[in-house]
Amino acid sequence: MLATGRRMTLNDYLPALVMFLLAVGFVAVTLPLSRLISTRGPATPEKEAPYECGILPEVEPAQRFPVKFYLVAILFVIFDVEIIFLFAWAANFPELGWFGVTTVGIFTLFVLETLLYVWRRGALDWNVRRRARRFAAASPTPQALEDAA
């Protein structure tokens, strides 16, 4: 139905729209119907409560625990996704030649610079306490911030 290389217009959506209307119509008919023909007992608080994941917890979890790798994970997201661009380059490596190598080289330099920054700031330190100390040392004191603001 939809030829490749053609611009899309609203007409292309007609079958989808029909499908959508059918779906809405089905819900609109069956929901009231089931209400009509079903029998209902008296309402209790438990019955009215929204159902969510079974029984209520008796006690709160003892405490929140430090997720050591939260910061590392967040950094991983960035570095991981940046690699996307290398795939496009690798797939066309022979054709792109030195032009590709140069551009990817510049790109990699920026990624390395980020890594260096993260490293020097101590964000990769696995020792959470030392990491916190280094962060605190790098951050201004509240007083300095207030004077500066």
């Binding site: 490749t4 053609r6 611009r7 899309m8 991981d80 996704v81 996307i84 661009f85 496009a88």
Partner: peptide
Amino acid sequence: TALGDLSGQVAVFFVLVVAAA
């Protein structure tokens, strides 16, 4: 895909990276 044009797919790369940032 409908247009038979690659730039739509390349755009996704950039959107993904920006979304990660």
